[in-house]
Amino acid sequence: MEEKSLSMETIEYYFQIQRYEHTIKLIKEAMNEQIENGRLWYMLGFSHYQLNDYDVAEEQLIESMRLGMNRAVVFPILGHLYLETERFQKAEEAFLETLRLNPTDVRTHASYAFLMAKAGQRKKAKALIYKALELDPEDAHVLRYYLRLEGLTSKGKQQMTALEQYMNSSDSELAKLIQLGVLASLQDRVAEAKEHFRQAFLLNPEDKKLLAILEEMDIQNHPLSAPNRLIMKFGGPLVFWVIGLGVMFLLQAVGFPTLAAIWLLVYMLFVIYTWISLPIVRLIRKIRR
């Protein structure tokens, strides 16, 4: 009996420290004797979900419920699984079922809000995330989604408050660095975003998504991409177009048509270059590799 619980403890520990591949290995060993253990099936399904093996994870999570695992624990994971696989209707069903079983589950409120935002139901998303905040204003998961849904698109004080609240939450350092990177990236603060993602990557160098983001940022920071960065410094393509064409019209209006034509030519060449610069950098990097 003691051996059995110790073995469960080891599995739980590996599960807790997010060693999902090893957890799966241990569970499969333990399954020989405990095939009817719902908790094991749940951990197995969750681990496969974390490793993006969604089909297998779905089956195992459903099996865990059949074997008596708490449905209010399993349904939110299923909801996230359906969200990841873009089965939005099933995701909604799973989240609503969780909320029916546990109406005060704040994290599911936040996850459901995220689903609504992804599906373009902005009003409902907003209502849900505020409801979650009302239920628990300090929950790390809720504050993370609040920052994503409201903080990133709001301005000034509201954004600062959302950010401050989230940074003071108990979320992991890794998650915080990623959120800061996303925030900086959405606000076109490329260098800052890269620094956050770099630090996040150092905490989890096996994360292929983070590596892809960093590599993309390297391309944007390449010397050949300097014109693209210049456009961003001017306030983005829109402002740059307005400035360029405004100068051309101005030159025409004040009686310098030849100069206007030369300006237009140079300007167009510059803009065309910014369209092809990033593919050129990618090609160079590929050849060098």
Binding site: Q16, I17, S170, E173, N204
Partner: peptide, 10 residues
């Protein structure tokens, strides 16, 4: 295990 990666209590 790095505590920076996880908010769990180890």
């Amino acid at each position: 295990f790095s505590r920076s990666k996880s908010s769990s209590n180890t």
